[in-house]
């Protein structure tokens, strides 16, 4: 039985197709400004990847900021709900799940069944989301994908005072002017956002295991900074940005079974 989950993120739309709980196909497309087009494009590439037709799907569940924009959805699930289901299926020991996407950061506590016990969200502020590292990479004039590896070369802590992405850009520029190395600045950037994320997580009582998902989890520099700040090890799945869509697909599977 085929089902699908579609995660309408701020930057990317992600789709996961499951066949009896096993991942059969994945698709991704930039969100851009036409949500319909983005949803269809990611969806079609997932169908192609799975080698099936749309009619083969029993149930489609949407999640993410634009979850209501998916015309072809059967049901929707909150981002927190999708994150918990997805993360627990990959790391069953997860009790605290942190998700950092392009425009939102959130943390939640979950039981072993992926039921959400408590959560906190940081939204409406780029300083606590992936948009922060993107803006800083632009200020540093290096591709955002290189930021992680670059920061791992630094062994030095450089404080950043700005709590706002716009002000932090100026701070990065003045660090460049004061001859601070790009490695050290990249680390300072990851330390800064990690400290904000871990402050957010600490508002929950942190229970192990901790799993990190969302697009920013692909950035190894950020992951290192977060581990250091939380002073514990963190699970990071292979495709951390697809976990929300996977969670939505798992919800779709349950719904389809319930008939």
């Amino acid at each position: 039985m085929y089902v699908a989950g579609i995660d309408m993120g701020a930057k990317f739309v992600k789709v996961v197709i499951l066949d009896d709980g096993e991942i059969k196909g994945k698709g991704m497309a930039p969100t851009g400004f036409d949500l319909d087009e983005a949803a269809n494009s990611a969806f079609n590439s997932a169908l192609e990847n799975a080698g099936i037709q749309k009619d083969d799907l029993k149930h489609i569940t949407s999640t993410g900021a634009g979850k209501k924009e998916v015309d072809f959805r059967n049901t929707e699930v909150t981002e927190v709900g999708a994150a918990a289901k997805g993360a627990i299926s990959l790391f069953p020991g997860s009790r605290t799940i942190i998700e950092v996407g392009a425009e939102e950061g959130r943390a939640l506590r979950s039981d072993e069944n992926g039921r959400v016990l408590d959560f906190v969200i940081n939204e409406k502020c780029a300083a606590g989301a992936g948009a922060f590292t993107e803006a800083m990479a632009r200020a540093l004039e290096i591709p955002v994908t290189e930021m992680g590896a670059l920061s791992l070369k630094s062994a030095k802590e450089t404080p950043m005072n700005a709590q706002c992405a716009v002000f932090a850009e100026s701070e990065v520029v003045s660090l460049v002017h004061s001859k601070t190395s790009k490695e050290d600045i990249a680390r300072a950037i990851h330390d800064a956002i990690a400290s904000r994320i871990s402050s957010m997580v600490r508002r929950l009582s942190i229970e192990k295991d901790v799993t990190l998902i969302g697009g920013l989890a692909k950035n190894i520099g950020f992951v290192e900074s977060l581990k250091r700040d939380l002073n514990m090890d963190i699970n990071v799945p292979d495709d951390p940005d697809f976990v929300g869509a996977l969670g939505a697909a798992l919800v779709a599977r349950k719904k389809a079974k319930e008939g």
Binding site: N161, S199, M200, R202, R203
Partner: peptide, 12 residues
């Protein structure tokens, strides 16, 4: 001064 921007967390 440096604390004014983070009291949500510090006072938590």
């Amino acid at each position: 001064e440096a604390e004014r921007k983070k009291i949500k967390y510090t006072c938590g």
